[in-house]
């Protein structure tokens, strides 16, 4: 898959993009004495699928936490559509259109699948405690939301499970549910933290298809993944992190040949065959 958007982009860390939706400058996060994230500059291309890879402990999830407001930066700035986001609480980040999923799925176990989905919708009148008392006020909106949720559930092949508790789904189904629920929030950018982990291979293909469709619908996708097949299959652009910093950027083809990337991976793992198997043996 090639995209014109990246034709002119240099494959080096921090390279400017043609149409940047998210940009990061001097982003640092320290825990005690350990620096978990230290990113000089990064731009994310709008309406593209960007894969974020790197060995364990590279700071990928922390990076996600930072840009979605789930963690506080030690230093640095970042902008979403040109608007500064640092210090903005997570829920406001989500409302602005930057929505995430979690590495360890956060399907709400004791809510039914359809309730999980409906929760995702933003701007619900019935979420005000006073209006909540009077069903006619929110009933119509609820029906619209439910219709949209059913639509998505069918697309994600979860419709048959719609009235089950989310806690009764398999691990892969929960991943699907979480992604579908995030879509209910009408995001512009969706950050997927290991969307394929634990998903059974039969489901993987359809899940990948969904991710690609998101792009066709105009969304920007950023995802963390360990499975290089997946990365090669769907990403337009790959960003590699190691020890908190960005060490390489480029198409997956250029990344596979990048010496810095190979060294970074070799530092943590031995059975390495970039591009064929998973880069992260510890994940098993």
């Amino acid at each position: 898959m090639t995209t014109d958007a990246f034709d002119q982009v240099e494959p080096r860390p921090g390279s400017p993009k043609r149409d940047t939706i998210l940009s990061v400058d001097g982003l640092v996060r320290r825990f005690g004495g350990i620096t978990a994230v230290d990113v000089d500059h990064l731009e994310i291309q709008a309406n593209a699928i960007t894969g974020l890879i790197g060995p364990n402990g590279a700071g990928k999830t922390t990076f996600f936490n930072l840009i979605t407001g789930f963690d506080e930066v030690t230093a640095g700035t970042f902008q979403f559509k040109g608007e500064p986001l640092e210090g903005v609480p997570a829920y406001k980040v989500a409302r602005k259109g930057l929505v995430r999923t979690f590495q360890l799925t956060k399907a709400l176990s004791k809510l039914s699948v359809i309730e999980n989905m409906k929760l995702g919708a933003v701007g619900q009148v019935g979420e005000n405690p006073f209006k909540a008392l009077i069903r006619p006020i929110w009933g119509n909106q609820e029906r619209e939301i439910e219709a949209r949720a059913d639509e998505l559930l069918k697309r994600f092949k979860l419709y048959e499970k719609r009235d089950d508790y989310a806690g009764e789904l398999s691990g892969g189904q929960r991943k699907l549910l979480e992604m579908a629920r995030a879509l209910m929030a009408d995001p512009e950018v969706i950050c997927l933290d290991e969307p394929m982990a634990g998903v059974n291979p039969a489901l993987t293909q359809s899940l990948l298809q969904h991710v690609k469709e998101l792009k066709d619908e105009g969304l920007t996708v950023v995802f963390v993944e360990h499975d290089m097949d997946v990365v090669r299959d769907i990403s337009d652009w790959v960003v590699v992190m190691a020890e908190g910093s960005i060490i390489a950027e480029g198409s997956h083809a250029s990344i596979g040949k990048n010496q810095a990337v190979i060294d970074a991976y070799l530092g943590t793992a031995h059975e390495i065959d970039l591009g064929t198997i998973e880069l992260d043996p510890e994940k098993h």
Partner: peptide
């Protein structure tokens, strides 16, 4: 009820 289950998930959905 969602907060009872996992408040971060609820946050991530803009609440």
């Amino acid at each position: 009820k969602a907060i009872r289950e996992d408040e971060d998930a609820v946050r991530s959905l803009g609440k």
